[in-house]
Design a protein around this nucleic acid. Structure first.
Lengths: 198, 198
DNA sequence: CAATGCATGTAAGGGGTTACATGATTCT
DNA sequence: AGAATCATGTAACCCCTTACATGCATTG
């Protein structure tokens, strides 16, 4: 559902081809939406068919012919409409919380190892988000710079602050998860020597 | 992927039929995994085929014949294995953060309305999770009581604390989201009168 | 007798993942 | 010559959503 809006959002910064969009979304360790390459091309095709974006054949970086997509008026309107609308939250589906619900039924050492791995991956993600937040706050990302070219200078500070704040939100959540996991380590460790089936 | 493990986890408390499981997972406003009824029956069938659970025909609440599923040894082993293993975090896909990234391009009043709706829904979810956490801490949920029957009394307190802590984690995250959204309200409101395209 | 609850399923369609396939250009 | 990068796609499979379909039993 939202991949389309993510693509529309990126394309408001500047027109891009499928390959660049795919790189942006692939893995995407530091953004709020990710998608594999194979999904991008299909989505772009259906979005073109439904009139949200336009393709123009242009020369790529190496003289290769590429399809460069840009927003149509309809695409801009759809993004604006979507951003302005309240959407019901997606149903909860938290695999790690599910896993943690059954830590009481495995050896404490195993639960500790899983929690530590979780903390490591959250800490890494946290770092990446902090970097991205700082880059946005300093107007130091390529896409933001492109985007600001079509906005009056007086708005630049407000825009960069708003975008940085979105990643501040991700940061706060990652920190909450890390704090939680550290307290879980204590809870699990409490019963050292506890084993499997009781 | 994890619906199977969620089902295995619930079935460790007691054998259940598809209908009860469907009610448990449907909407599931206060648990960590949700799934619609239509998904449950299919998942149960494939899990039975792959030997994770066993079905036995028994009498339901009203003399109706129902299929009651219980874990096989293989099912227990699979759940234990899954819970004991570190899993890579799912790629980020945060629709609300995506939406918030473009609040700078809509009227501030619209952004405020969306944020307020978000805060309301998060606050509601928060309340439900707090109720559930408290119920677990007080050994006051039907499923936990069933589950504890097969565990030594000495472990009851530890188990209920661990489970309650999982929901404490959800609570902390919901609070972080609400705090974030409230600061976002200030940031957005800063530029009162700012409009659409600049 | 109608509505609600118990109980089990199917079907169609969309979204996401993994892997495969192809071809040109640039770098080493 | 071989590897990496640019560039665009396809195919199979699984998960999830929405909706439909059926039938028995209880309650008002």
């Amino acid at each position: 559902m939202s991949l389309r809006h993510a693509l529309l959002g990126v394309l408001t910064a500047r027109p891009m081809n499928g390959y660049s969009l795919a790189r942006f979304f692939a893995g995407s360790q530091n953004w709020v939406w990710s998608a594999p390459q194979s999904q991008i091309y299909g989505a772009l095709k259906t979005m073109e068919t439904s009139g949200l974006i336009d393709a123009s054949r242009e020369e790529g970086q190496n003289g290769l012919e590429t399809k460069v997509y840009s927003l149509t008026d309809e695409g801009v309107a759809e993004l604006t409409r979507w951003v302005s609308t309240s959407h019901a939250p997606a149903p909860t589906r938290d695999a790690f919380a599910l896993q943690a619900l059954y830590f009481d039924s495995i050896p404490a050492a195993d639960a500790r190892a899983v929690l530590e791995g979780y903390i490591r991956s959250q800490a890494q993600q946290l770092e990446e988000w902090e970097r991205h937040r700082d880059a946005l706050a300093n107007l130091d990302t390529p896409l933001l710079q492109e985007r600001l070219k079509s906005r009056p200078k007086g708005e630049h500070r407000r825009i960069s602050r708003l975008k940085a704040h979105v990643f501040e939100g991700q940061i706060l959540q990652a920190k909450a998860r890390i704090d939680w996991a550290e307290r879980a380590l204590v809870l699990v460790g409490d019963a050292e020597g506890e084993d499997d089936e009781g």
